[in-house]
């Protein structure tokens, strides 16, 4: 029976055009919508699979605004059984702050009788891309941590984690409790069913505010790289362009 805590972050959907807030301190995503990273979607899927296979539980947690309830409900809709919202301004939290707030949740729940054997996070948040929260969380809780993991299996008192190395899959065997940072690609996240969505609506989300004073991450401002003016040279339309294309390939030295 493995109880899993999976961490999510509500982030702007980078598929759309990005604009900044008036003070250039945050991304204005009102018109592009929000999502969680692909890595976190995979982490939720792994959490639910492990809970199902071991007869344990999968709990989702997010630090963010009240709107992050949307992302938590999505996790509930695909099989998480409980959700925790740490209501805070995520922009004011650096990676060390987030790790500390998450560690506090793990400790509080342990004090109340729920010990999470496995903490799953995305390899990095899709927006801030700090690459630190899983590792800082592991140090805060004195647990082993592995990152870049695509699949996990619970075997007795340890987790077998598989990542992609440059020369082939790399396998870790780590004793539980442990922290694992997930990269997408090992599992296909399931889509929520209508029934799942209905059920998710009824779950009461445990809401609280972190008790720490965040130090932030040192952000001075955000900058949008200027859009370079298009310099595209149209070689032609349709199959007739083939000659011009191959001339170019020869010029570039990639074809004879």
């Amino acid at each position: 029976m493995t109880d899993v805590l999976v961490c999510l972050k509500r982030v702007p959907d980078a598929a759309g055009e990005i604009t900044l807030s008036g003070d250039s301190m945050s991304i204005d995503a009102r018109h592009v919508g929000y999502t969680v990273s692909a890595h976190e979607e995979a982490a939720v899927e792994l959490a639910v699979q492990i809970a199902d296979e071991t007869g344990g539980s999968a709990t989702a947690v997010s630090l963010g605004s009240g709107d992050a309830v949307e992302q938590l409900r999505n996790a509930l809709a695909v099989g998480c059984s409980a959700a925790v919202l740490l209501e805070a301004d995520a922009e004011a939290y650096g990676p060390a702050d987030v790790a500390e707030a998450l560690a506090a949740v793990v400790r509080d729940h342990a004090a109340n009788g729920t010990t999470y054997d496995l903490l799953l996070l995305g390899n990095d948040a899709a927006d801030s891309g700090d690459f630190q929260v899983p590792i800082r969380l592991a140090y805060a809780l004195d647990r082993p941590v592995v990152t870049g993991i695509s699949t996990v299996e619970i075997e007795g008192d340890h987790v077998t984690a598989r990542g992609r190395g440059t020369e082939g899959p790399e396998i870790y065997e780590v004793p539980l409790p442990a922290v694992v940072a997930v990269m997408e690609g090992g599992v296909s996240p399931r889509y929520p069913s209508i029934r799942g969505r209905m059920k998710a609506k009824k779950v009461k989300i445990d809401q609280s505010e972190p008790s720490l004073q965040p130090a932030g991450n040192g952000r001075i401002k955000l900058v949008l790289p200027p859009a370079a003016p298009s310099k595209v040279e149209i070689l032609g339309e349709g199959p007739e362009a083939a000659t011009a294309v191959v001339d170019l390939l020869v010029r570039l030295g990639v074809a004879r």
């Binding site: 702007p12 980078a14 990005i18 900044l20 991304i27 899709a126 927006d127 801030s128 891309g129 991450n217 040192g218 952000r219 001075i220 401002k221 955000l222 900058v223 949008l224 790289p225």
Partner: peptide, 17 residues
Amino acid sequence: VVNRQVLGGSVLEQMQV
């Protein structure tokens, strides 16, 4: 002070370390 890639490189963050 550095500029670093956030949001997959579509935005730069100026950050004081």
